[in-house]
Amino acid sequence: MIDVTITVPDTLRQAFERLAQSLSHRQPLMRTLSEDLYDAVVENFEQEGRPRWLPIDRAGKILQ
């Protein structure tokens, strides 16, 4: 049988540990994602689409 040993720098090992921890406790990640998505939707409404949508034949904003 062949044994393979891979040595990685401590910084990479620590990064993997943080990643594993964040996957085990997803609430902070989900909160951040939901806030980012909410901000994107609000900005889309303010800018009436990104890139800006073509105008339509009616009064008012495209997105309401």
Rank of each mutant, 00 (worst) to 15 (best):
M1N: 12
I2E: 10
I2F: 06
D3P: 07
T5S: 13
T5L: 14
T5V: 15
T5Q: 14
I6K: 11
I6R: 12
I6A: 13
T7R: 13
T7L: 12
T7W: 04
V8I: 13
V8D: 05
V8H: 06
V8C: 08
P9A: 10
P9G: 06
P9H: 04
P9I: 02
P9S: 09
D10S: 15
D10G: 15
T11N: 04
L12I: 14
L12D: 12
R13Y: 09
R13Q: 12
R13G: 13
Q14C: 08
A15T: 15
A15M: 13
E17L: 05
E17A: 09
E17S: 06
R18A: 06
R18W: 02
R18Q: 08
L19H: 13
A20P: 02
A20D: 13
A20T: 12
Q21N: 15
Q21L: 15
Q21W: 13
Q21I: 10
Q21P: 00
S22T: 07
S22H: 04
L23Y: 08
S24F: 04
H25L: 13
H25Q: 15
H25Y: 11
R26Q: 09
R26W: 02
Q27E: 09
Q27T: 05
P28D: 02
P28I: 00
L29K: 00
L29S: 02
L29P: 00
M30F: 03
M30K: 09
M30A: 09
M30Q: 10
M30V: 05
R31N: 07
T32N: 13
T32V: 13
L33G: 08
S34Y: 04
S34E: 15
E35S: 04
D36I: 06
Y38H: 10
Y38F: 06
D39Y: 00
D39I: 01
D39Q: 11
D39L: 03
A40C: 02
A40N: 03
A40D: 02
V41D: 00
V41S: 01
V41N: 01
V42I: 08
V42D: 01
E43Q: 12
E43R: 03
E43P: 00
E43A: 07
N44G: 04
N44V: 05
F45L: 10
F45M: 10
F45D: 05
E46A: 07
E46D: 12
E46L: 07
Q47D: 06
Q47E: 11
Q47H: 14
Q47F: 04
Q47V: 10
E48K: 02
E48M: 03
G49C: 06
G49V: 04
R50V: 09
R50F: 05
R50Q: 07
R50I: 10
P51L: 01
P51G: 03
P51Q: 06
R52N: 06
R52C: 03
R52F: 01
W53A: 15
L54K: 14
L54F: 08
L54R: 14
P55Q: 05
I56P: 00
I56A: 15
D57G: 05
D57P: 04
D57Q: 10
R58V: 02
A59R: 10
A59G: 11
A59K: 07
G60V: 07
G60R: 06
G60P: 00
G60K: 08
K61I: 10
K61D: 12
I62F: 01
I62K: 00
I62H: 00
L63A: 08
Q64L: 07
Q64T: 12
Q64N: 12
Q64Y: 03
